[in-house]
Design a protein around this nucleic acid. Structure first.
Length: 227
DNA sequence: GCGACAG
DNA sequence: ATCTTGTCGC
């Protein structure tokens, strides 16, 4: 049943993978703004709806520059490994509403840390044409490889190595709080990604500010739209 | 049948 | 992701 869709999606991912470049196309000193992207869902009349919120913040001051959102019916089901196919339509719609495009996008989900290195952060980069970083709150286990818990100190991390290849990084952004999982999206390396994520951490959350704010925003928007 | 499983 | 209150702790 889903076999055909999964085969089709996998082919698309494999095709895009050939164009991934885990090298910086922008130096972090040049970054002015960063966008956080997230979605929230709800049901109505038996149909599934979603809203995508993008919050752009000033990389230095962490102050909000712009907020936009899109919403609509969600037709693609959630299948582990194929999150991008479900969320990309609303993401692209929201991006088109931005007055000024950000220098980089941070996603709520993985990038290179994925079965075929094509998590949503990596996949989406080809439609946004900007560097991207994946930030996941829970671990996606690949090839039965567990992550190594980093030391309980802010900034500590352990690399996630599978078959001798670094897929991503388990990062402790806040002491006494469980770590997050950072991975390259595209056009950026893992050290720079880690650096940027840590620079977006404040006492409010273990998540980087752009992603955290986008998450809060989706809840507000859903509250309005779902009634 | 049972467990896994980003969001 | 979503359904959900209070509660323990810095």
């Amino acid at each position: 049943m889903n076999e055909n869709i999964i085969r089709e999606f996998s082919d698309i991912q494999d095709e895009l993978l050939a164009k991934v470049k885990l090298e910086n196309t922008i130096q972090k000193e040049e970054i002015q703004s960063i966008a956080g992207v997230d979605l929230a869902y709800w049901d109505k009349d038996g149909k599934a709806y979603g809203t995508c919120c993008i919050v752009v913040v000033d990389y230095r001051t962490q102050e909000v520059i712009e907020k936009v959102y899109s919403y609509g019916e969600i037709t693609v089901p959630y299948i582990p490994g194929f999150l991008a196919f479900r969320e990309l339509p609303l993401i692209i719609e929201a991006v088109q509403k931005l007055t000024k495009l950000p220098d980089l996008y941070m996603f709520d989900g993985n990038g290179y840390l994925h079965y075929r290195h094509m998590g949503i952060a990596t996949h989406a980069s080809f439609f946004l044409n900007k560097p991207t970083i994946g930030v996941a709150k829970s671990y996606l286990k690949i090839k039965d490889t567990d992550f190594i818990m980093p030391e309980n100190e802010e900034g500590c991390y352990t690399d996630i190595v599978i078959d001798n290849e670094v897929y991503g990084r388990t990062l402790r952004t806040t002491k006494n709080v469980k770590p997050i999982f950072v991975s390259c999206g595209n056009w950026i390396d893992l050290d720079t990604s880690t650096d940027i994520v840590l620079n977006c951490i404040n006492k409010e959350s273990r998540l980087p500010v752009p992603v955290r704010l986008a998450d809060l925003e989706t809840h507000k928007v859903r509250k309005q739209l779902s009634k």
